[in-house]
Amino acid sequence: MKTLLVAEYRDGKLLNSTYELVAFAAQTGSESAMFLVGDNSIVPQYNGTLYLADSNKYNEFNPAVHKQLLLDVIATEKPDMVVFSHSSYGWDLAPRISLALGAAHISEVVEIDAGVPVAPVCNSKLRRQVKGNTAQTVITLQAGTFGLSDEPSGTPTIIEINTDSVAQTEFYGYEEAEASGVDLSKAEVIVSAGRGIGKPENLGIIEELAKALKGEYGASRPVIDAEWVDHSRQVGTTGQTVSPKLYVACGISGAIQHLAGMKKSEFVVAINTDKDAPIGEVADVLIVADLKQFVPALTQKLSA
């Protein structure tokens, strides 16, 4: 199989997800080439052909133009599969490519099972094997699924590419993440609240448990979006990535974006009324209980 890997560059940096694409090609035994809109002084460590467009000229978010650059490379390379990361860049650009190619497009692939891509359904509670009916296939890979077995190495053969294509949107800068008041990445214990806490009044029991365990408290996205907890305490893809000695997930179902932010924790305890919640996949201990009863009981015993 021949694959074309769509690497990502942002704000002066090559994104690490690029190497997950390389790992995917290696694990599937594919021949590969790479596409990148980036900077020729910051190229991936990769043995293969790198089709490189200059982001100073074509911008970092400019889908109509990136689409044309990529379609030109696809016309040259004729890959069987075009592979993106399932990221803000990948899920935005991939549909534009699959439509132009008339190709099957499978999102958030977590494995290739006997040649068939597998994707999660219903917040990862189910898995789906998806068969494309077209000669070419476009896929996006779930972040963190295809890890590198070796350190990245190699030097690409660079082919510079250009286009006269016209932009449809104007990207004019980045807004940095709000300065974090709390550095959760340094905490040894984190007790996090999810949607299952029900109402903001129940945050108190989470804070008290965190205090009893001499740790910090955090939260998952729904709690942040509801503005019950400040953004600086968000754990997950769009918040902080943490790896404490103990992570206690209270009423957190375990969306992939949350798991990506905490799955490197040394020991995970989940408290959830739903025995099938995806958080169970990463939990060392799953307590099936109502957190409003269990958490105060635990705090009381720890403080006794």
């Binding site: 942002r10 704000d11 970092e60 978010f61 990221s87 803000s88 860049y89 935005d92 449809q168 949107t169 104007e170 990207f171 004019y172 800068g173 980045y174 807004e175 940095e176 993440a177 709000e178 953004h231 968000q234 893809t237 769009t238 918040g239």
Partner: peptide, 14 residues
């Protein structure tokens, strides 16, 4: 504003 990974946002007009 588009949400990117790590809480960064891209500012876009059209």
């Amino acid at each position: 504003k588009r949400e990117l990974e790590g809480g960064i946002k891209a500012l876009v007009r059209c």
